[in-house]
Design a protein around this nucleic acid. Structure first.
Lengths: 202, 202
DNA sequence: ATGTGCTAACTGAATAGTTAGTCAGCACGT
DNA sequence: ACGTGCTGACTAACTATTCAGTTAGCACAT
C-alpha cells in the first residue's frame, strides 16, 4: 500500500481525494504507465468524475504538481533560525540520503519521469522552473545568512546555490536511473567542497 | 532537417539506416511522442521492415542506445596525452556549454527523456549504468593522471569523478527541463571548486 | 410540510482514434 | 526452387474523452 505524505491525509474533499489517488497511481505505476483508468482505480469514485473536476489528463497532472509544490512550499519553514551551517548540512543530508524528506522512493521515481516531460512540454517546464527557483532561492538565502553570521566564506550566494541545485537534480536523477553507485562518492566530494569552499575556517 | 553526428554518415547498411531514422525521429518528436510509425516515416523503407530487423520497439530503442554508446566510446581517445588539467577543463566546458560535444539540443532533450525511462525499466537502467560507468571511469582516470603529473592535489579520484558525474547529469537534465537559469552560476561555482579543491596551487 | 426548479456531483456505457505488432505475399539474387 | 529483404493491409488492444442520464441537495414559493 502507498504511504502518503502527511499533507495528503484523508479528507472528505473530492479534489483532495483525486490528488491522493493520483499520488498513489503515480507511485504504483510510474508516469509512463499512468492512465486515467489507473487513477480511477485508486479513487473511490468513478473515473468519469475526474473529467467533471479537471479538463483533461494533462490539466489534472499539472494541477497535481502545483498542489504538491504548494504543500511543500508551505511546509518548509521560511527559515528557522539556528546555524546556517547546520541547515546546509541538513540539505546535503536530505539530498544524498533519502532524496527529499519524506518522499517515498516510488514517488521520487515518478518525479524524475515527470521532470523529463518538461523537455517537450511547456506546462511541465513552467512547473519545474518555479520549483527550481523556489529551492534555489531558499538555498541562496540560507547561504547569505551564513555569510552574515560569519560561518560561511564571502562567496556569491546565487552561484553557490546554483551549484547546489545542479547537484540536487543530478543526485535525484542518478539515484533512480542508474545502478552505478555514485552517491557515496559524490557526497564525500561535495562535503569536501563545502568544507573548503564554503565554511569559514575557524 | 536533422543534423547527424559524424558517425551516423550515410551507408548502404539497412541497420545503420534504421539507427539514423531513429535518431532523426527522436530529435524531431522526442521520446514521449516517438512511435514506430514515425521512425518508419524517417526511414526510406517501410515500417514493417523494422520488425524484420528488431523484435520490438523496446528492442530497437535499446539497440539504438547501445549503438550510440559504442560509437561514443570508440570516439573518445582513451586518453590523449597532454595536461590532465586541460582535459578536465575541456570536460567542464562541454558540460556547461553545449552539453555533450556535437549533440544537438534536440537529441539532448530526447536523451533526458530516455534516461527517465530507466526509473521503471530495467533495460534502460542497465544501459545508463554502463554509460555512467564509462564516463565516470574516464574522468577518474584523467584525475589519476593529473595527480601523477603533479597538476592535481592528492584527492580521491573515484569520489571526485563521482561528483563530476552528478554535476554532469544534473546540468544536462536542468538545461532541458527548466527555464531557471542555473548554468552560468553553477559553472562559476564548480570552476571555483576545481581551482581550490582539485588543482595544485603553483 | 410540500412541491418545484435548479445545480453540482456522479455514473456506466459508448466512441473515435492511435498504437505496437502480424502476416500473406512480392521481387530478386543465387 | 529458395531464402532474404521487403511491403501494404490488417488487427487486437488500449487510450483519452464524451455523453445521456441518475441522484442528492438546496432555495424558495405555496
Amino acid at each position: 500500500m502507498t504511504q502518503f505524505p502527511p499533507f495528503l491525509e484523508e479528507t472528505d474533499d473530492t479534489r483532495d481525494a483525486i490528488m491522493r489517488a493520483t499520488y498513489a497511481a503515480l507511485c504504483e505505476h510510474g508516469y509512463s504507465e499512468l492512465t486515467i483508468q489507473r487513477i480511477g482505480d485508486a479513487f473511490p469514485k468513478s473515473k468519469s468524475l475526474l473529467y467533471h473536476h479537471y479538463d483533461s489528463k494533462d490539466d489534472l497532472l499539472l494541477e497535481f504538481l502545483s498542489f504538491m509544490l504548494d504543500q511543500l512550499e508551505g511546509q518548509i519553514p521560511t527559515y528557522r533560525e539556528g546555524g546556517a551551517d547546520d541547515h546546509i548540512a541538513e540539505i546535503v543530508e536530505q539530498t544524498f540520503d533519502l532524496g527529499v524528506a519524506e518522499m517515498s522512493a516510488d514517488f521520487t521515481r515518478a518525479l524524475v519521469e515527470l521532470r523529463a516531460q518538461a523537455a517537450h512540454d511547456e506546462g511541465y517546464r513552467d512547473h519545474f522552473t518555479r520549483s527550481d527557483q523556489f529551492v534555489r532561492k531558499h538555498v541562496a538565502h540560507t547561504i547569505r545568512s551564513g555569510i552574515e553570521q560569519g560561518v560561511f566564506q564571502d562567496v556569491d550566494p546565487q552561484e553557490t546555490a546554483a551549484l547546489f541545485q545542479v547537484v540536487f537534480v543530478g543526485t535525484m536523477t542518478q539515484r533512480v536511473t542508474s545502478d552505478d553507485d555514485v552517491l557515496e562518492g559524490g557526497r564525500s566530494a561535495f562535503e569536501r567542497y563545502i568544507r573548503e569552499c564554503l565554511l569559514e575556517a575557524e
